[in-house]
Simulated scan of single mutants.
Amino acid sequence: MHHHAHALAVAERLAADLAPGTRGIGLFGSVAKGTDHPHSDIDLFLAVDADPGTEVRQVQGRMVTLSRKTFADLDGGLANPWEAVTAVGAWRHAVVLHDPEGRMRRLQARARDWTWETIAAAADQWAARELVGLAEEVHKVAGMLALDRPRAAAANRAVLVLQVGYALAVADRLVCDSENDLWDAVAAAEGPAWTSAWDTAAGIAAADHATGCRAALALYRHAADRLDRHLDAAECAIVRTARDLTA
């Protein structure tokens, strides 16, 4: 585990250098959890008052991702359904490296006590709205297949594979340590039919292009059936029209 010790040392030295310009610094991801491999990046979150953004550096042969966020943004990770899936788990395993005000540790304590019940209604609404938004991708995949435009169909198929998975992660109330864990967690929650379709649509299982696209459409159909009860009348019309194209 020499690579892990090296990654920790890089994170700690960099945090010490960056500390004067920040209100807090936390180490997140696989390095914080101790599950990193030699090619894992080092994820540092910096609490700042202004100029949020992301910077990537190369430090002693390791890729370091610096995510500068305000405390309002960091709080939002526990309040927004699309962020909470991975943010809660990440905070639970984070290593706080700089915290003069104690706010990073308070956020970590909130994450450890957090449950989906705190945002249950917002979670269902977000998953339903995501499904409505993805109806356009269904129309595009079906249309591009009919027009024999494989690249366009493949691009929209990829959007469905990723984003429908996120909608169901929220609907299933999953908490994952990182996005790397999300796809297996959704597969476990949704069962064999979903898993088979996802593997085919994502290219894990060998299949021709048209079959892969139809598998992506099947993912949408699966999600539409799961989330139908959270849709209002107008949303139902949009989703059911798209669902009809997946048959």
Rank of each mutant, 00 (worst) to 15 (best):
L145H: 03
A142Q: 11
A32G: 06
S40I: 12
S30D: 10
A32T: 09
H222D: 11
D113C: 05
R110V: 08
G34Y: 02
D75S: 11
A223G: 05
D49H: 10
R92A: 11
G29V: 07
P192S: 11
W126F: 13
D49P: 05
L44E: 02
E179A: 15
A233V: 13
P192A: 13
R103M: 09
P100V: 03
A202W: 05
D36V: 03
D75Y: 04
V88C: 06
G212H: 00
V31F: 10
F45A: 14
G29M: 06
T70F: 01
H2L: 09
P150L: 15
I238A: 12
I238P: 01
P100H: 03
Q60Y: 06
A122N: 04
G53W: 03
R103I: 08
A127H: 07
A223M: 01
A84M: 08
R62M: 13
E136R: 11
T211H: 06
T246I: 11
L66E: 10
A153K: 02
A7T: 05
L245R: 14
A154C: 07
R110T: 12
E12H: 09
R173Q: 14
L66Q: 10
T200F: 00
M1K: 11
D73R: 03
R129P: 09
Y166P: 00
F45S: 10
L8G: 13
V159L: 08
T211P: 02
D113R: 14
L147W: 13
V239W: 01
M63N: 12
A121N: 08
D177E: 15
V141S: 10
T200K: 00
D43M: 02
L97W: 03
A224D: 04
A167R: 00
E55W: 00
A16L: 11
A15E: 08
D36S: 15
R226T: 14
I42M: 09
A197Y: 01
D124R: 14
I204K: 14
A127Q: 07
G89M: 00
L44Q: 05
T35Q: 03
K33M: 09
H98F: 07
M104W: 11
C213V: 05
R149S: 15
A202R: 05
P52R: 01
L46I: 04
G24T: 10
P100L: 02
E117D: 15
A224F: 03
A146R: 15
V159W: 02
W183N: 11
G191F: 06
A94V: 10
H37M: 05
R112M: 08
W194D: 07
D148N: 15
I119F: 12
A109W: 06
D113H: 11
M1H: 12
A142Y: 02
Y166L: 10
A152T: 12
T115G: 06
S67N: 08
A94F: 07
Q58K: 01
G212F: 00
E136T: 15
P52S: 11
V138D: 02
D124H: 14
V64Q: 01
D172W: 02
L78N: 05
T241L: 04
A127P: 09
I25L: 00
Q58L: 13
R129I: 13
V96Q: 08
H93E: 14
N156V: 02
T65E: 15
A237V: 13
T70L: 01
H230D: 09
R103A: 14
A9M: 04
A224R: 02
R214S: 09
Q125K: 05
R23N: 12
E12Y: 01
A15H: 07
D36C: 13
